[in-house]
Design a protein around this nucleic acid. Structure first.
Lengths: 347, 347
DNA sequence: GCGTTTGCTGTAAACGATTACAGTCCCACA
DNA sequence: TGTGGGACTGTAATCGTTTACAGCAAACGC
C-alpha cells in the first residue's frame, strides 16, 4: 500500500520515534540525522496517515457540517462562511446532507464519531434530542436556526421575527393596509418565526383595521407560483404580498408576469433572505437580508472556541440581526418617499 | 472520554471481539449473547470510532473533494451532484477549498491521506504534477476540467470548445458579422477552451470576412462591467458580445442598462454556463448550458467505480456535451426565425 | 470411547502514528 | 577518575478497532 513512517525510519536508519520527532518538530535531533530523515521522507514521498495520527492525538482538525441539503444559494453561502473561518483556524470540513430523514440524520451523526472535533448543525428541522442520543457526552456542537430548546447545545439564530415585523412595518409605511403572507413549511423554525413576526406586526396595527391573510407555501419556487392563483381568486385582494422567502416571491413574480399582472403597480411583493438573484430580477425584489455567510462564520468561530475550551464552559446563544433591503418591487408612495428623503437629509 | 468497544464488552461480560462481531453482523454469536451486547451498546450509547475502524479496514467511506473555492452557483451545483451520487454509494464528503494557492493545495491534498478513499479534484488551475507528488501511488482521483495532460489521472471535461463554437455559429446565423469575445482568466482551462472555440468558429467564417475581437476579462462580474467601457470606446463596434461566462455577461448587461444601451437592440449579448440567474435577468440571457451537477455526479460515479476496481484498470476520459440555450438577450432576426420555424416543423 | 466436526468465544496481532520512559554517549567539572 | 547532566535516540505502550487463529465445549459418527 502506501508508504508509512516505518519505511521512512528504515530508509534513514533510525527509529520511527525519531522520524516522528523530526516531522513534528519536537524534541532535539542531530542536524545530520534530521537531514537524512527529511531526505528519506521526500524520496519515498511519505505522507502521514491522518487517521492513525488522530487516533492517538485525539484530534482530527476537522469540523463536521450537517445540513438538510446542499442545494441552493443559502447553503452555498453558509458553507462559504464556514469554510473561510474553518480554514483560518486550521480545520477541514466534513460535509453531510441529511435530506431531513431522521434515520439518515442519525446515521450521519454517528458516522462523524472519531472523524470530527465538533459539529455545526443546520437544523431547522433536526430535533436536538436525536443529536443528543447519537453523540458522545459533551461533544462540541453549534446549532443553527434550531427549532429545539436551547438547553442542551450552543445555538445561533437569525432574527427572523424581527425581520418579518420590520418588513410589515415597511409595507404599512408605504400605505398598504391589506398585506398577505405566503407561509413556509410548517415544521421549519425559520418559517414559523417569520410567520410569527408577520402576525404580531399585523396585530400591532389593529388600530388600522388590519387582519392577517395567510397563504400556504413550502419555500419552493413552485409554491410561490401556485400562490398567484389563490391570490387572484380572492374576493378582497391584498395590495402587498410578503413571501416567507425569496424563492417563493420569485415564483410569484414569474406567475404575475405571465398573466400580465404588474408589480409593483398592482401588487407590491416582498421576500425574505435577500439571495443574490433578488436584485437581478425585474423589478428588483425588496427583501430581508439574512447574513448567511456571517452566520456560518460566526458558528464556526464559536465551535472552534468551544473545542479549545474543553467541556467546562457555559452554553452560548446568539441572534444575528437581519436588515431590510428596499428595492423596486414594493414601489414607494409619495408620503413615504418624502419621509425617506427628509431622513437621509438628516444623516 | 467517550465510550469504547472495550467498555461495551465489559458491560456485557464478553470480549471485544464478540462485540465487534455482533455490531458488524459477522460470525456466529449466540442469540442470548447478542441480545446482551446490543443492550449494553445501547445503554452506554456506544458509537464506533470511525477513525480507528478505518485504520484497520483500510477504507474510510469518505470521498475527498478539492475545489478552488466554495462560492457561487457553480460550486453549489457541483457539490450537489457529487453529494447525491456519493450518498447513494454510501460515501461521505470531505470538502476542501484551496483558493488556488499552490502551497495550500499541497497542504490539503496531504491532509486527505488516510481520511478519504478517493479524490474529486476540480482543477482548472491545479497542476496534476502537484497532485502526483503529494498522493500515494495509484490513489483514485478524478480530475474535473483539468488543464493537464490526461496521462496520469482519470478525467472528466465539459465540452467548452464545442459550446463556444455553437454559440458563435448561432450568432452568425442571427446575422451578426462582428462578434466580440470577453475572455476569462488566461490560466484557466475552461476559459482557454472557450476562447479556442470562439477563435476557431470565427476563423471558419473567414468567407464572411469575420475577424476575432477579444476583450480581457477574468470571469468576475466586475470585469464584464469594465468591458462595457472598452466596447463603447471602440471605433468599430461589434453587434454581438459573447462573454466567456454568465457572470461577466451579467456585469456587462448591468453596465449597459445604466448607460441606456439597449439589449438586444444595440448589442446582442451571450454568456456561458447557464447559471440559474441567467433566465431571471432582463432580458433573459442566451447562454451555453453546462451540465454542472451531472458533471459532479458522473465524476463521483467513476471515482466510486475506480475505488471498487482497485489499481489495475485503464484510465478513463470523458467529455460531457454542452447545449445552447437561446433566450431573448440575442434577439432574433427574421431570416433566422423563419429558418428555425421551418426546422422545427421538420422534427 | 475416541477422533472430528460444529458452534461459539477469547487472545492477541495488526493498522500507523505519538510519546513517556529509558537508555547511551559525550563532555564538563570536581 | 568518577559523576552529573545534556543531547540524542530507541523501545514499547497506546489510541479503538477488526480479524486470524486458537481454544473449548457439545454433538456426532463410527
Amino acid at each position: 500500500m502506501s508508504v508509512t513512517i516505518r519505511e521512512v525510519a528504515r530508509e534513514a536508519s533510525v527509529s520511527v520515534a525519531t522520524v516522528s520527532r523530526v516531522l513534528n518538530g519536537k524534541g532535539p535531533v542531530r542536524p545530520e540525522t534530521e537531514r537524512r530523515i527529511r531526505k528519506a521522507a521526500k524520496s519515498l514521498r511519505y505522507i502521514p496517515h491522518g487517521g492513525a495520527r488522530s487516533l492517538i492525538t485525539r484530534k482530527t482538525s476537522t469540523l463536521g457540517v450537517l445540513m438538510p441539503e446542499l442545494y441552493g444559494e443559502f447553503f452555498s453561502e453558509l458553507i462559504r462562511g464556514i469554510d473561510v473561518c474553518a480554514r483560518r483556524s486550521g480545520y477541514h470540513l466534513l460535509v453531510s446532507s441529511s435530506h431531513s430523514e431522521r434515520s439518515e440524520t442519525e446515521e450521519m451523526v454517528r458516522a462523524m464519531r472519531g472523524r470530527v472535533d465538533g459539529l455545526v448543525v443546520l437544523s431547522p428541522d433536526v430535533r436536538p434530542s436525536v443529536l443528543r442520543a447519537n453523540l458522545p457526552e459533551k461533544f462540541p456542537v453549534v446549532l443553527l436556526n434550531s427549532a429545539g430548546n436551547r438547553l442542551s447545545f450552543d445555538s445561533l439564530n437569525v432574527d427572523n421575527f424581527g425581520g418579518a415585523t420590520a418588513m410589515v412595518r415597511h409595507l404599512v409605511r408605504l400605505g398598504h393596509r391589506r398585506i398577505a403572507f405566503i407561509q413556509g413549511p410548517s415544521l421549519n423554525r425559520d418559517a414559523s418565526e417569520r410567520l410569527r413576526g408577520y402576525r404580531e406586526a399585523i396585530g400591532a396595527q389593529a388600530g388600522l383595521g388590519m387582519a392577517p391573510l395567510e397563504i400556504p407555501g413550502d419555500f419552493r419556487e413552485e409554491s410561490g407560483y401556485e400562490a398567484s392563483r389563490k391570490i387572484l381568486a380572492l374576493k378582497q385582494r391584498p395590495s402587498a404580498i410578503f413571501a416567507a422567502n425569496d424563492s417563493m416571491a420569485i415564483g410569484l413574480l414569474c406567475a404575475f408576469q405571465e398573466t400580465g399582472v404588474r408589480v409593483p403597480e398592482d401588487f407590491a411583493i416582498a421576500g425574505f433572505d435577500d439571495i443574490p438573484i433578488a436584485r437581478y430580477i425585474t423589478p428588483p425584489l425588496t427583501s430581508v437580508r439574512v447574513p448567511i455567510s456571517d452566520l456560518g462564520a460566526r458558528a464556526t468561530e464559536r465551535l472552534v472556541e468551544a473545542i479549545a475550551a474543553g467541556s467546562d464552559r457555559a452554553l452560548f446563544h446568539e441572534t444575528l440581526p437581519t436588515t431590510l433591503v428596499v428595492r423596486a418591487s414594493c414601489g414607494e408612495n409619495g408620503r413615504a418617499r418624502a419621509r425617506r428623503l427628509a431622513r437621509s437629509a438628516d444623516g
